[in-house]
Design a protein around this nucleic acid. Sequence first.
DNA 1: GGCCTTTCTTAACCTAGATTAATGCACAAG
DNA 2: CTTGTGCATTAATCTAGGTTAAGAAAGGCC
Lengths: 156, 156
Amino acid sequence: MKKIEVKKGQILQRKGDLSSRKYSVEKGLLRSYTIDEKGKEHLFMFAPEGWIIADASSVNGPTDLFIEALENSIILVLDEGVQFTESDTIRLIKRIAVLQKRAIMLMSASAIERYDDFLKTYPDIVQRVPQKMIASYLGITPEALSKVKSAKTKGL
Amino acid sequence: MKKIEVKKGQILQRKGDLSSRKYSVEKGLLRSYTIDEKGKEHLFMFAPEGWIIADASSVNGPTDLFIEALENSIILVLDEGVQFTESDTIRLIKRIAVLQKRAIMLMSASAIERYDDFLKTYPDIVQRVPQKMIASYLGITPEALSKVKSAKTKGL
DNA sequence: GGCCTTTCTTAACCTAGATTAATGCACAAG
DNA sequence: CTTGTGCATTAATCTAGGTTAAGAAAGGCC
C-alpha cells in the first residue's frame, strides 16, 4: 500500500493484465474502460477524489478494463489478495448495488434519463471530462449526447 | 438458515421490503426483477439450481427487486447480516465481475449478441421460461426477440 | 502569435428495435 | 366440448439513436 503520483494520460492497468490492484483516489480523476472487438471504447466508471476503482474481472483471469488517469492525480495503490475486512465486504455489496442499478438503468432508461442519472452520480465531473467520455459512459455517441443536451436547454 | 419449499408464482421478496435475504436454489428456478415508474418489468437475473440470488440494494435501504419462483422450488434461505467468510467475499467479487460484464454488454452489444450471451450464461433455461421473460432480461420487447430468433434460424 | 490536432455541434440520412395490431396457439376453467 | 385468457409470431409503421459528413471552437506546441 503506497502512495503514487500519476500524470494525466498515464495508464495504470491495461486490458489483459494478469494481476490487478485497487486504486484509492486522493486527488485527481481516474477512469476505467474497455475496448470491444470492434475497437470501440466503453467507459465503465469515473473515480474522482474519495472513490476507489478496481477491476473485479481479474478474479476470473486476465483483466477486462483499462484504468487511466484523466488528470494529474495522487492515488493510493492497494494490494489485491490482502485479507478482507468487514468494511471491505460492505463496500463490495454497495458496489454490487450500484452496478445492479446501472444495469437496470441501461436496460430501461432513455439517453436523457441516463444523462440525468450521470449528473446526479457525478455532480462535479461534467466540466472536467470531454463530452465524448460522458457519451461513452452513457452508452451513446457524442452526437447523440449533443442532441440530448440541446433538447434539455431548449426545454427550459 | 432453513430449507423451504415454494410453489410456482410465489413471491419471496417484494420491491420496497426493508430487509432482504439470500436464497440458494437447490431445485427449481427463481428470478429477480424490478418494475419501473412506467410499470414496465425488467428481469434482472435467473437463478437455476446451484445459484444464489439476492438483492444487494437492501444495504442502502428498501429493496429494488422482486424475487419470485418460476417453478416449484426447494431453496435454502440464508440470513443477511451473518459474518462473512473469505469465500463469501470471493463470491461477491465474482458477482461484481459478472455485473460488470453485463453492464458492458448492455452498453455495447446488439440484441442478437445479448441473446447469444444469454444462451451461454443460462444454457438450459431457454425451454423453461416464457419468451417474454427472456426478452425482458435482454432489455428488448418479445416482438423483437421473435425477430432475433427467426433471423438466427434463417441464417443457418 | 499561427498551426495542427482533437473536440463539439449541427444537419441529413439510415437502421435497430419499439409500438400497434392482427392471427394462431396452448392450456386452464366452466 | 367450448370459451376464455395469456403467449408467441408476423407484419406495418414509427422513433430514438447511430452514421456520415462538414464546419466551429478549443487546446497543445513550435
